[in-house]
Design a protein around this nucleic acid. Structure first.
Lengths: 107, 107
DNA sequence: ACCGTTCGTCAGTCGTAACTTACCGTTCGT
DNA sequence: ACGAACGGTAAGTTACGACTGACGAACGGT
């Protein structure tokens, strides 16, 4: 789906962030990721599925193992959200502050 | 604390994102936010506490009501995380792809 | 001084998602 | 062809957090 909501939901879990940070170091198979984390291999598999659905990682089959790597789509979706939402909002606030008058206080 | 982990945890909940988006429109008191959401006022209060701890909102007392507004600190923490983590990682990948050789495949 | 409004906090309930173990399919080597 | 390695899926448990209702504190108006 790769919407910003899915990306933020995926990044909302600490273990999932750890998985993603390991993948960011270098592409790795599932077993190697699980060996570096305090959770079981199936747990890592489930986290990888969420990260994949959010567009944060991609997987490719290499022999019997699946190598996971970072995907830029998720990062792009999140960045677009930040750029539109925050910049616009903060700009609106800046305008309100310049007028020294909050919007809801206007007659 | 305003670390990127706290920001992502805060943004991981859909209801909390709705609260933040309402606050982004214009500074509002708690009751007004609760009136526009399908949850109770205490729930909104608890979400606002998390958002505040993450540095995403600030509150100021105005008479009997507390007005919440966006805070740029949370956005800055998240943006710094994205800039450092993703840009560096994706750049490293780009280099690896140019060499047509993944890091773990090298002798 | 009292009453209404607004809000934070506390206890308690409930749903969900993060985790485990067990099982099965797929792939490669011999 | 058989066995071992690797990983996804299913079933089940558990722990956490999202939510509600009840209470109390602070401020303002009359």
């Amino acid at each position: 789906m790769t919407t910003y909501g899915a990306v933020l939901d995926a990044l909302g879990d600490p273990t999932r962030r750890s998985v993603l940070e390991l993948v960011a170091e270098r592409p790795q198979p599932v077993g190697e990721l699980a060996a570096r984390l305090p959770v079981s291999r199936p747990a890592v598999s489930q986290h990888l599925r969420v990260l994949k659905d959010a567009g944060l990682v991609t997987d490719t089959a290499v022999g019997t193992q699946r190598v996971y790597r970072l995907d830029a789509r998720g990062a792009a979706a999140l960045r677009a959200y930040l750029d539109r939402f925050w910049d616009d909002s903060l700009a609106a606030y800046a305008r309100a502050v310049e007028q020294d008058l909050a919007p809801e206080e206007r007659p």
